[in-house]
Design a binder for these strands. Structure first.
Lengths: 350, 350
DNA sequence: GCCGATTTGTCCTCAAGTGGACAAATTGAA
DNA sequence: TTCAATTTGTCCACTTGAGGACAAATCGGC
């Protein structure tokens, strides 16, 4: 059977091809009568306009590309710990694309590759998507941003703590860290350790600022020796935890830069027989499955990743529909949630 | 800046458009000399052929669509337990697509919807993919299969226990269940309970067959009362576990139909103070992160989902490249692995 | 019944590539 | 040199839909 084209629909509805096109593209100058006839024909024939053909005349492609970091994705996949940031992003974006009649393509890029610019350019030029979603750490990479700008394709940066080109959708990492720190202070903790994250992710810096802000607001001086560098990996977290827990004046609570780090702290604490939460409170960011399943489940900040991705899709689709060529701008903050769990409690007496 | 087209490349390399096309499509009748010149021009201009345009003349679309079950995907996403079957499928397929210069689109379909056929048809007709990957339980749905057949698009069914149209890539669920059961028998267990899965998934039936086969091979009669129906959900698993553990002649080991069910068994056992593995051994299928992070980590069968997806992509790409219109056939079995963990041990003495 | 406004149709161009027919140029061998 | 084979170029058709210009048909009001 041949493919059903706009011509078949026109014949069946006994109208011109042009009229079918007008109906499909929701042009206002069609009488309800004719519109109904055309829609009936479309339904009966099971017609759907071919995306490739629509794209040809310079129209929309109905495609959105999400660029994910290759290394991160692979680690994520191989990891036993199920860090599902990217998965959640994808679910949110996919569902929203569906609503708009769009399609989501996930592409991997490798920031370390010397072919990076070429790779980004290739994907953009072969697919010609209507918009691009960038996830950390791609959303802060100058090469990627330059390639996007050159191709003049609208893009949204997801979860980036850095101002810059394109639109931005994120949660307020600084406020989240502040609230999490305040939660610990309210419980009575006064010596709160902080394992910082990878400098590659600017969100890590924002979290540190929030931590400092909460201490300052409570009138407490920041003990710089309680800030230990991690790098968002398990190994980095282990080293940092060992440094913090070996101290004579051990902190009574630790804020971990991300979940991977938190699991490392949990691991070290168990090895050193430091009971959580009795002897040490532990809080972290991201709320991946691993920290919900850990023993005890950890207090975290739930980042609204899927909602952020959905918002990004909305922005890009609106931008494509407007076709005024204006790149999307703005910085949308989505609300986060504290998930208070069994890993945080008042500090031990004395 | 205008988009770089094949015409620009031709001008730069001082050859005809036709020759560039021949180079891009790897036709043999081009001298190495000219080929090099064209490739240099492509590189310098950063040219990538536009997928939409290639598709027009009836050529390949370089797109592969994976149809996932909407309900399952959403449950998966909302679940705290991170059942990442679909994610693993996607990683495997995406990586392989990348190698072939293909792109993966994940689309959700809802088997319960009365618009199902229309939905499948719409996606196929608007995207015109070169191939389709079906995941459970879509891969056994007659409406979906009929729509695929009508559209004449090659497809691979992933993880389906049922013979049928299209190619099939899967692991041997029956053998896996047999080996898992044998593992328990070798440890000394004689009363092994089995919580069956949802009849929607035929793999569940295959697992049951494997369980029966192992008992038969060991010369043991099957106690039908030890087979309790679950439905692959946590709630179903709870009910089944309660039934099994309430018995006077409680089984010393339980084989759960999938990980979700196993977690339910774990939950009930803890509530009833049945120690695992001391009083009860527990084994399951799928090896999702949740059963690696559980206490104790569970003995499972690791299903090579990503590898299966990669194999599916290879099949579809080969099929598209052959362009002889022959739909892919065959049934590839990929090796699974037993992950023996702390949840299985010899039965309690006495 | 006429005028003007709105709706619908006709016709053409354009997008970016593929593929076929066939001619022209180049190469190699006899 | 000449013929044949191979490589390269020319030219055209084709894919499916969008969109613009403009003509034709229809409708409503008076």
């Amino acid at each position: 059977m041949r493919n059903v084209t706009i011509v078949h629909v026109a014949e069946k509805a006994r109208v011109s091809v042009k009229t079918v096109s007008r109906v499909v593209n929701n042009e206002p100058t069609v009488t309800p009568d004719l519109r109904a006839r055309v829609e009936a024909a479309i339904e009966q024939l099971g017609y759907s306009p071919n995306i490739a053909a629509r794209r040809m005349g310079g129209g929309r492609s109905f495609l959105i590309v999400a660029f994910n970091d290759r290394t991160l994705t692979l680690e994520n996949w191989r990891s036993d710990r199920g860090n599902n940031w990217i998965d959640r992003m994808q679910y949110g974006a996919m569902l929203r694309c569906d609503v708009h009649g769009y399609h989501l393509l996930c592409e991997l890029i490798d920031l370390e590759s010397d072919q990076l610019a070429r790779r980004v350019q290739h994907v953009l030029s072969t697919l010609r998507p209507d918009g691009v979603i960038l996830t950390p750490p791609n959303c802060e990479d100058p090469t990627v941003l330059a390639a996007l700008k050159k191709a003049q394709i609208p893009f949204v940066r997801l979860g980036s703590a850095q101002a810059g080109p394109g639109a931005r959708v994120r949660m307020d990492d600084q406020a989240a860290a502040r609230q999490l720190t305040e939660h610990l202070l309210t419980l009575g903790h006064r010596r709160v350790g902080f394992v910082t994250g990878s400098p590659r992710f600017l969100a890590s810096r924002a979290r540190e600022d929030g931590y400092r802000g909460a201490l300052a607001k409570a009138g407490l001086a920041v003990d710089e020796s309680l800030l230990v560098p991690g790098d968002f990996t398990f190994e980095g977290g282990v080293a940092a935890a060992e440094a913090l827990l070996a101290r004579a004046d051990r902190p009574t609570a630790i804020l971990a830069g991300n979940d991977e780090t938190a699991l490392a702290v949990l691991h070290v604490a168990r090895r050193l027989s430091v009971a959580i939460p009795d002897a040490l409170s532990l809080a972290t960011f991201d709320d991946t499955p691993s920290v919900r399943l850990s023993l005890p489940p950890l207090t975290t900040v739930r980042q609204p990743v899927a909602e952020m991705a959905a918002e990004a899709v909305d922005i890009l689709v609106a931008c494509a529909a407007a076709k005024d060529g204006k790149p999307p701008r703005g910085d949308r903050l989505l609300p986060f949630e504290l998930a208070l769990r069994a890993s945080t409690a008042p500090p031990p007496a004395g």
